[in-house]
Structures are given as C-alpha cells and as structure tokens.
C-alpha cells in the first residue's frame, strides 16, 4: 500500500467537499474492493474519504411501493432485514450470498454499484428491478447508471446516497459462481414489476445490462419456453480461464430459465 491521506467525514456534504479538495481522492464505503486493490499497489489514491461515519447513508425503508436502501447499508444488513425479506426476498437472498461473511459485514450496496465490478451481483438486481440510484446530485435510472467495466454515470465528486427499488410482483436471482472467487461468472436477475418482465445480467459481459433479447423471448410472461431459442451475441461475452464466451452465453440462458422458474 502506498501512502495516502485518510479523511473521515460525517456528512455527504463534507465528503463531497473533501473530495473536491483532494488531488486524486477516492470515496471508500466498505472497502472490500478498494483496500485489497490498494494493498496490491494497483491503486494509489492521494486521499481516502471514508463514508463509514455518514449516518444519513444507512437505513432500509419501504415508501410508496418502493424499497429504499441507504448506500452504506451492508450486504449483511440487507440480507437480514425483515423489510427486505418481505418486500423483495430475492434481493435479500442475493445480498446474503455475496462474497463471504467478512465481505458481507463490510461491503455495501452503494460501494458495490459505484465500483461496478462486471461480476458483482447487485447491478443485475438494480437493472432488473428498474431501480433508481439517488446520488448527492441527482436521481439516475438503473439503465443509465452502469456505463462500462468499472465505470458508471457517477461524477468524481458524486456519491450514491440510496437506491430505490420498485416492489416487484415476482423476482429471482440465479448466480453461477466462479469456483475460485465465488463472484458471478454469470448472474441473472428476473423481475416482474407492474406487468413487465425485466432481465438484468451481470458477469457475462463487460457491463451489467438488461437482457433485451431474453425479455423479448419472455414477452412479459414468466414462461421460459422461448429462452432456448434466443441467440445471444457470443462475441460480446467475457472469456477467461473459468468460462469461455460460448459457455457464458449458454449459462446466461440456463440461469435465466432457472430464475424464471424460481419466480413462479
């Protein structure tokens, strides 16, 4: 780890100010990606601005048919939340299967989506549930939030404050785990909300995305009968020692079918 300045702040406004003053600052939420990256000397921010003390960023509530999760809410808190379990049980289960207990007790929803690891779980849910990402500046629809591998619509001094999930009629997440890291080789979140069925896909490509071809095959119904016939663009799939592009494309369909079945 290289030397850096550590800044602890107690409000979003103070965090933004600290960032604006920093030469090359980074916000740190749970630090479950940031700190290992720094430890391996792959990142060297001048300032680390710790959001851990910002009380306004935590909390879970249901308001106007929306589940609102504060950005600094840990995966463990989401998994254990009675409100989440009742409102969107698939989201509670997703959170309960991220990483390991240490990761779940430190890692946060806001940190996960702001980092946008292409194999992270949350982005699939955010997209499929048609969530809105609230930041220190604005509200960003899920589909516009994730822009590329480790890239989002966030500005440098913009902080995710909460995510608002419209309550679905049915939802399920199916994750095919990397046997080593347990990240998603492919993760598919299927949700039926307001009569519409959406598919969020993570792990398969450089960027979490809506599975429009899969949604078209489902035609607004929770019936996976047409999924096998879908042709996915293999050339856009990730490929590594754990899964080739062709295998990933296949897994997207298998996980979609299983998620649809689990919705029923």
């Amino acid at each position: 780890m290289y030397e850096f300045n550590y800044r602890k702040v107690d409000s979003v406004a103070a965090a933004v100010e600290a960032m604006q003053q920093a030469e090359d600052g980074k916000f740190v939420a749970g630090g479950q990606t940031m700190l290992p990256t720094m430890k391996h000397r792959l990142a060297s921010p001048s300032d680390l601005i710790d959001l851990g003390g910002v009380a306004e960023l935590t909390g879970i509530s249901v308001e106007n048919e929306n589940l609102i999760v504060g950005a600094m809410t840990t995966h463990a808190a989401v998994a254990a939340s009675a409100e989440v379990q009742q409102a969107i049980p698939a989201l509670a289960r997703l959170a309960g299967n991220i990483g390991d207990p240490a990761v779940r007790n430190r890692g946060t929803l806001g940190g996960s989506i702001a980092n946008h690891d292409p194999a992270a779980d949350y982005p699939a849910a955010v997209i499929a549930l048609g969530a809105t990402v609230q930041t220190s500046k604005r509200a960003i629809p899920a589909e516009e939030f994730f822009t590329g591998m480790f890239e989002t619509a966030l500005k440098d001094d913009e902080i995710v404050t909460s995510v608002s999930f419209p309550l679905p009629e049915a939802a399920a997440y199916m994750k095919f785990e990397n046997p080593a890291s347990r990240y998603a080789i492919v993760g598919v979140f299927v949700a039926k909300t307001g009569g519409e069925v959406r598919v969020g896909v993570t792990g398969a490509t450089a960027c979490a995305h809506r599975g429009f071809r899969l949604e078209a095959a489902l035609g607004g119904e929770l019936d996976a009968g047409g999924i096998d016939a879908v042709e996915l663009p293999v050339e856009q799939m990730n490929s590594d020692i754990h899964a080739s592009a062709e295998y990933r494309a296949h897994l997207v369909k298998v996980m979609t079918k299983r998620a649809v079945e689990a919705c029923q």
């Binding site: 990397n178 080593a180 890291s181 990240y183």
Partner: peptide, 11 residues
C-alpha cells in the same frame, strides 16, 4: 501466472 491468487486459483 494467471492463477496467482485465490480469485482465480480454486481451492
């Protein structure tokens, strides 16, 4: 070495 960490080397 591609499998140089537990992210890629599965125990």
């Amino acid at each position: 070495l591609i499998t140089a960490s537990y992210m890629d080397y599965a125990m």
